[in-house]
Design a protein around this nucleic acid. Structure first.
Lengths: 115, 115
DNA sequence: TGACAATAGTGTGCGATACACAGTATATTA
DNA sequence: TAATATACTGTGTATCGCACACTATTGTCA
């Protein structure tokens, strides 16, 4: 891979940053477990490594945005996550922030700022 | 500041990641120097610390996306930056990537993925 | 029985960024 | 003219999320 492409990859990766958190939070109105989230997000077009998602879920729980509960009734134990109340508030604010960023970037890209 | 708000700040900061690069590249069809970019971007609604912008500009130059040239004719020496050819290509690709990300996130947020 | 899928995790290095700080020369104002 | 602000560029450092390689266990199915 050329050097330019490596840099491009890095830049795109950087752009995606933080969006995974929003994607995850958005799916957790309904309880989901990690493994299901991986395939689910993948289906929606947000591919994610398990080794990326699991630490994220634990972090969000530690921060109080998610609640978790083990389900040991099924054939295999699953850890279900769900949005907490503060998690929901934070999610709303994040979406708002996202929209502002998107709008501002649109303007910048279309050079509407050049007057 | 409450703990939740600190986390929120971090998350929003994370969301903004990488967008500054796009913003900067978008303004460099015309040559600009660092200080002018700071105020310019600030006007457009993309506030940025000088201590953040300058290293970014140098990095982008080192990566070959920007060319630079000192102007010592004016009262104060200014370092003008300009998109290189590859810089322009990369910028186009970044915008494309950004649009895809934005679209995908929109879907996720509006729960269009739940079918 | 042996391989694959389901399910959850850890460890680590990289790299961008925010922020505090530094430095110099020119305008501007008192 | 002395003092203060502003224009302009930079450096150093700590943080922190993330990608990725890796580990581990248990059930399922050929």
């Amino acid at each position: 891979m050329s050097e330019v492409n490596e840099h491009l990859e890095k830049l795109m990766q950087e752009l995606r940053r933080g969006t995974l958190t929003i994607a995850v939070l958005s799916q957790l109105n309904e309880p989901q477990y990690g493994y299901s989230l991986v395939t689910m997000l993948d289906d929606i077009g947000v591919p994610v490594e398990p080794g990326t998602l699991y630490p994220l879920l634990r972090r969000l729980e530690k921060q109080g945005l998610l609640d978790s509960k083990w389900d040991t009734n099924e054939s295999r134990p699953r850890k279900y996550y769900l949005l907490s109340e503060t998690g929901n508030e934070v999610y709303q604010l994040l979406v708002k922030e996202w929209n502002e960023i998107a709008e501002s970037l649109e303007k910048v890209i279309n050079n509407k700022g050049a007057n």
